[in-house]
């Protein structure tokens, strides 16, 4: 919530981003990214970052140092070492992190509401509208169940394809 409001203050037409650009003499007109699709992505990445960083960092810290030393001894540069040694070792952690972030992103509510505006409503926003504005609690509940069912189905498919539960378990 705090991060999202921080991004909101940054992206307002005459917000912190505009202030910076104006001070750098790069822009004089207010910025019109607030309440657009593009405005949501940086905030979503900022909110979801810990869920990606922690599993990937754990995989990186578990790397065999001898393999990295061997790559260096045999003349591999940083790019080749990353592609041939590091990336294969952390690939499964990246996939697990991706599944976790994707499943959690399906339930995003506050960030799209504050930064995306009414034209970028996600499923959670529509459910809220049915429950609080349209006074159709039954339809809102049905939509919630469809969202839960879809999320579980996506997770099961991802687990079947990438064996993420083995990684977490």
């Amino acid at each position: 919530m705090v991060r999202t409001i921080g991004w909101m203050l940054l992206e307002l037409p005459t917000g912190a981003l505009f202030w910076l650009l104006e001070k750098a003499h790069l822009r004089t007109e207010p910025i019109d990214i607030y309440q657009t699709t593009g405005a949501m992505y940086p905030a979503m990445i900022a909110v979801m970052l810990p869920f990606a960083v922690l599993p990937i960092l754990a995989a990186i810290l578990g790397l065999d140092r001898e393999q990295l030393n061997a790559a260096t001894v045999f003349g591999a540069g940083p790019v080749l070492t990353f592609g041939a040694v590091v990336l294969p070792a952390i690939r499964q952690a990246m996939i697990s992190a991706g599944v976790l972030v994707f499943v959690m992103s399906l339930g995003f509510y506050v960030t799209p509401l504050l930064l995306g505006g009414p034209s970028n409503m996600t499923v959670s926003g529509i459910i809220n509208g049915q429950l609080n504005n349209a006074n159709r609690a039954d339809v809102g509940a049905a939509m919630s169940l469809l969202l839960v069912g879809g999320t579980v189905a996506i997770y099961l498919v991802a687990d079947r394809l990438f064996k993420v539960s083995e990684r977490w378990g």
Partner: peptide, 24 residues
């Protein structure tokens, strides 16, 4: 909204994993 949510989640996931890898 379902389509928009799936697209949003997919783009955010790809970007988060990319940024998260560099960060880690």
């Amino acid at each position: 909204a379902v389509g928009r949510t799936l697209l949003l989640a997919a783009v955010a996931t790809a970007a988060t994993v990319l940024v998260g890898t560099c960060y880690a």
